[in-house]
């Protein structure tokens, strides 16, 4: 067993874990507070990637536009999130799960078609800033610098979320909403505004993930559906509603998959689902989730 191979493989798995965490963190946050599974979450992710591609254009990445795009795209997507919450989402919180599912499902298709109208079906490519391209030597093997950047951003996002939830008033309110929304409302908190804020943060997280991942993928229609299944699995494994759970779920999925691909490639596609079945068989509400009230 070559140590370098295993190290590179684990790092590759952690890269996957990094962006899966960012996408599923937003999804799980929204579910935690509002009990809505947002199928259109993947659309926010895809839009951020498209916006980055549009801003960076076909340039070499040397112009610094990449950094601008990295900041602007998540903000635009967050604004989209706010608009979506105010116009649609807040009308369906009181509805059955199936209605919510259908509504966000419909949003998913609408967003997909609008994206096709704006950006067309061609594959787009984004060049990262030059400082992020190239390789780093890890135990005698080369590993892409950009992948470290993805992991770094994921860690920053994770820490920021932790600080937000544990150390700020907004965070306390969000956690209170997860625990007991009735009591929260009774204390005079504007729950309606809180929900808009949470949904916006959720979209922002999807936006950060989409913007960061843009230089690693072909930016084209289908990105939205591609990410959604895995992000949902991560959120379910971790326990819907738990950010820490999403982090653990992403790491489990990323590493499980990476090791599977290295040692038993024929079965690699099944590994994701095996991980999910195992966890759900033991804890149907996920690793760090709580059974529904």
């Amino acid at each position: 067993m070559d140590l370098g191979n295993v190290a590179i493989q684990l790092l590759s798995g952690m890269t996957v874990a990094g962006y899966l965490f960012m996408v599923s963190a937003g999804m799980t946050l929204v579910f935690g507070a509002m009990r809505v599974i947002n199928i259109a979450h993947g659309s926010f992710y895809m839009y951020a990637a498209f916006i980055v591609a549009a801003i960076v254009g076909k340039g070499t990445g040397a112009s610094g536009m990449f950094w601008v795009a990295l900041l602007v795209a998540p903000l635009i997507v967050a604004a989209m999130g706010t608009a979506t919450e105010v116009t649609i989402m807040r009308r369906i919180y009181t509805k059955e799960h199936l209605t919510q599912l259908l509504a966000t499902f419909a949003l998913f298709y609408i967003f997909a078609d609008v994206a096709l109208q704006i950006w067309g079906g061609a594959f787009r490519s984004v060049q990262a800033a030059p400082v992020l391209t190239g390789q780093v030597n890890v135990l005698g093997r080369s590993f892409p610098k950009y992948n470290f950047f993805v992991m770094g951003v994921a860690v920053v996002v994770g820490v920021a979320m932790w600080l937000l939830l544990q150390r700020t008033k907004l965070g306390w309110r969000i956690r209170a909403a997860v625990e007991d929304p009735e009591l929260l409302a009774a204390t005079g908190t504007n729950v309606r505004l809180l929900f808009t804020t949470v949904f916006t943060i959720g979209a922002l997280l999807a936006g950060v993930a989409g913007a960061v991942v843009a230089p690693l993928v072909s930016v084209a229609p289908g990105l939205d559906a591609g990410i959604l299944v895995e992000a949902f699995i991560v959120a379910v494994i971790g326990g819907l509603g738990s950010i820490a759970g999403a982090a653990i779920g992403a790491i489990i999925l990323g590493l499980f998959q990476a090791i599977g691909i290295l040692w038993v490639p024929t079965w690699a596609s099944a590994f994701t689902y095996i991980a999910m079945i195992l966890v759900l068989a033991v804890r149907p509400w996920g690793l760090l989730g709580t059974p529904e009230r």
């Binding site: 996957v16 990476a258 691909i261």
Partner: peptide, 18 residues
Amino acid sequence: WPKLGSSDFTPYISAIQS
């Protein structure tokens, strides 16, 4: 054998490299 529409081939690439 990744699934169609995979968004991350990173682990596949490193496994092939190995």
